[in-house]
Nucleic acid binder design. Structure first.
Length: 237
DNA sequence: CTGCCCCCCTGTCCGC
DNA sequence: TGCGGACAGGGGGGCA
């Protein structure tokens, strides 16, 4: 990793699942946390934890910011000048999941002939949704994860769009989802609380809070997928 | 275009 | 107590 000494951070932004730390002089760090990545503020004096790949030192704070990622599925790009606008991983970022308009979402989804869950996970289609929040959104909207996108009615698409927005908003308020292995921690090293509100994700064999039916787990496009067979029935054919 | 399979990597958990 | 296998919040690539 190159060194960018004595640069002031001018802004911190987000593009889908990418974190953008912009520095003076058209420098930018583009960070993706992958599955196990964390950004942790730690005391200057403490040794960086195992699997720390980048440390940002601050002149005026008592902490340093450590990027930690045991599985190394994440990455960091350091770009200069026009590099940011040409960065391949950013060019592929679709419209943000929290900013979807009814008109556009309808048009986008109906134009595809794909199962809805993998479509929601496709970051070039919609940016920001991962496995947990896709399942939660589909349950909230009462849509089966294998439902084909072009067969969804407009009313269902509106339910889904709002379910996505609500799910993400609630998850953010709750500080994110820290599952059993506590891989997710916020920048202060604290656990999230949204795992306590999950309605389907990770609840195989437990009862649906809405109808009481047993939550099932299936594999959809090689991702674990949780849903309620009664609330989210498969499409009749 | 879409789905399916494999890969990347480390840590944890479960059954034997 | 050890050991092998399955699995995990993501994403990319090859192939049918």
């Amino acid at each position: 990793m190159r060194r960018f000494p004595r640069k002031k951070i001018t802004s911190v932004e987000r593009a889908g699942k990418h974190l953008l730390i912009k520095l003076e002089g058209k420098l930018c760090l583009v960070i993706h946390l992958g599955m196990s990545g964390k950004m942790l503020l730690l005391p200057k004096s403490s040794p960086p934890p195992k699997h720390t790949h980048l440390v940002i030192h601050f002149k005026e704070f008592a902490e340093k910011l450590c990027h930690n990622d045991p599985r190394r599925f994440g990455y960091i790009h350091a770009v200069t000048g026009d590099g940011l606008r040409n960065l391949d991983c950013l060019l592929k970022v679709g419209p943000d999941a929290t900013q979807l308009t009814k008109k556009r979402f309808d048009r986008m989804v109906k134009a595809k002939h794909r199962m809805i869950k993998p479509l929601l996970l496709d970051q070039s289609f919609i940016a920001g949704l991962g496995n947990i929040y896709s399942d939660e959104s589909l349950h909230k909207a009462k849509i089966h994860p294998r439902r084909l996108s072009h067969t969804l009615r407009s009313s269902q698409l509106d339910s889904l769009r709002l379910a996505i927005r609500t799910t993400l908003r609630q998850a953010i308020v709750a500080g994110g989802s820290s599952l059993n292995d506590e891989t997710y921690l916020n920048v202060d090293g604290e656990l999230g609380r949204f795992q306590l509100q999950l309605r389907v994700y990770g609840r195989e064999g437990e009862r649906c809070f809405h109808c009481g039916r047993t939550i099932r787990k299936i594999i959809v496009s090689s991702r674990s997928t949780y849903f309620c067979p009664r609330c989210q029935p498969a499409q009749k054919r």
